[in-house]
Amino acid sequence: MARMKFLCDTERCIECNGCVTACNNEHDVPEGINRRHVVTLKDGEYGEKSMSVACMHCTDAPCAAVCPVDCFYTTPDGIVLHDKDLCIGCGYCFYACPFGAPQFEEQNIFAARTKMDKCTFCAGGPPPDNSAEEYRQYGRNRIAEGKLPLCAEMCSTKALLAGDGSIVSDIYRQRVVRRGGRPDTWGWDTAYDFKGSKE
């Protein structure tokens, strides 16, 4: 059985935030929510690395383990989804998730926390596929259309991969072998020629 996975190749991610924009646009994500975000380590320093992070659709998802109303379910493809009609917005999943994937809209005037929102691997939710109700609650269902998540499909440097975990890992393995432990032909070394300036 296939398991759908995301993988971000940090040697290729250029922190363009195109994945974040594509996600927000595709799913008409409410204000204050970013289902995907780009994390940059050593920003502005030598060895800077960026990584696009969203729900990693864990095999044994901690969000599902802590949910007091059991609103999570996993598809046969390993995509972790949830039912917003069951969610009570308690926020436990937010504390349990090591990737910061669960998101909540900014508090309204009555200070009530909203239902949890997270990356769906572009697979929508329980309402009928690509219905208006599904789009309103979860965004577009690209998986039902035979497509993969837009964030990965539009990634200009192919840093973000999304698909069957075995194929994704095979592509990454080939890249690592091809690099031979060195960075790709783009990246910090190429752009700023640090190797040359050190000599």
């Binding site: 379910y73 039912d83 998986i143 039902a144 035979g146 991969l161």
Partner: peptide, 28 residues
């Protein structure tokens, strides 16, 4: 026990279709 709505996606087999899509769009 999950007592939410039944996702129609659960009943569909899209493995090959999605793999074909991956090879078309995301390979190096």
């Amino acid at each position: 026990v999950y007592k939410g709505g039944k996702d129609p996606l659960l009943a569909k087999e899209r493995h090959q279709e999605l793999n074909d899509r991956f090879m078309k769009v995301q390979t190096d």
